[in-house]
Design a protein around this nucleic acid. Structure first.
Lengths: 228, 228
DNA sequence: ATGTGTGAATCGGTTCACAGCC
DNA sequence: GGCTGTGAACCGATTCACACAT
């Protein structure tokens, strides 16, 4: 349904929200939580923009896709808007998660409290390494990959996190999909494809460093080295 | 110089490479390494596109920004193109890295061999927690944040990784910048701003999950719940 | 007076389609 | 005949600027 920057969707939808807007909703959510913590009753698009690190026009256009939730001359009601953004993001209930790969990264992700506390409880790590199966990482049990289907069924897991070696990523993704997972977050440095109706997003640490390296290099001395 | 999707650059440059293209170069690099491992001498844009998970027209246009390195009717020389892409990405030498924050994430990143092996040696973790200073995470020493400037000078560190709690992220980023770091990779779920001449990129795990949650929710049952 | 909501203009990026070279 | 390189057409997203509501 949604893959690395390209969106394919069923045509009839209440309001089509642009992909770029969806990617910023989490930013607004965080900003609104901050404002709510500070007991601010209302806020302008300008204020929200500052907190989210974008410009005010973008905030207004983005929010307008969710509905006309602001008041002209006044701004947005913080609590109300927070509720609307939460609802748009599907935070009305938890989304249980399974992490595949109990290596360094998988364990760090399982330990990282940010997931569970924000409505994405990690129900299990899965791995094929028998010596790891049965362990606990923090409070999260390590189960065998073969238990994936049962875990998904039992805990209604909708999101799978790929933290496997890249060689195994596609195969594990396939198993996730056939187990009924609808969304995949891929940390493996590999191209993984899924059917159209499944969402996939990629987090690629190595690529990020390479991109920074590109600009870093151009910044200092890129013009002096013209050797082919 | 480059911030979360927006690029600001000095106007006079050999060839301006679009930001979207730069973001795909790491993908091509990986694909070319695969082809080189398989002893393939040449490859078409189509083949490269398959491996990189994009389409062939995009590959050709992207590569054309680097130069006319292909041969009409034949394709691209794998080794030669690999060299050119590596050079464009600044991989002619190592880029030492400092990771700020010796918590779960920082330690996992330090342990994750992918960085060091790919030309981004982690020279140190820095933290303000005195009880952690002096430890080693794998082979990486934990130093006090106050040593940042000395570390940057001594190891010519160009890239800083923010793996601190979000409350500390901006402050640590400021210290990185004043220590002379030119590129920042931010893992903290906070908006961090840097001067124009510094690059910053963000990896936000929580946001990625929220975005998946958005599409997951729409996929199943989004149309049935129309309550305001 | 103030600040939202939104058409219109603009911009960057993608895709098309074919001329040009092997 | 096959495949690259690239203008032109297209498309999504951003920014502008102002009408409209309070």
């Amino acid at each position: 349904m949604h893959e690395g920057g390209t969106l394919r969707r069923v045509p009839d939808e209440p309001r089509r929200i642009p992909e770029a807007t969806v990617a910023r909703l989490p930013l607004y959510l965080r900003s609104l939580v901050t404002l709510a913590d500070e007991r601010e009753a209302t806020c302008s698009s300008e204020r929200l923009a500052d907190l989210a690190g974008v410009n005010a026009a973008k905030v207004r256009k983005d929010l307008s896709y969710l509905g006309s939730y602001g008041t002209r001359g006044v701004g947005y009601d913080v609590e109300f808007l927070l509720h609307q953004v939460s609802r748009a993001l599907g935070l009305t209930h938890d989304w249980p998660v399974v992490i595949a790969g109990a290596g360094n990264l998988g364990r760090a992700l399982a330990n990282y409290g940010g997931f569970t506390s924000r409505g994405f409880p990690v129900v299990a790590l899965v791995d094929t390494d028998e010596s790891k199966v049965g362990e606990k990482v923090g409070t999260t049990p390590v189960r065998h990959l073969d238990d994936l289907e049962a875990l998904v069924k039992e805990h209604h897991v909708a999101i799978g996190v790929l933290a496997t070696p890249s060689g195994a990523a596609q195969e594990v993704a396939d198993r996730m999909v056939s187990a009924g997972i609808g969304s995949v977050l891929n940390f493996a440095p590999a191209v993984v494809t899924v059917p159209d109706e499944v969402s996939i997003r990629k987090v690629d640490l190595a690529s990020e460093l390479l991109i920074l390296s590109f600009y870093q290099q151009r910044q200092a001395g890129g013009l002096t080295d013209l050797t082919g």
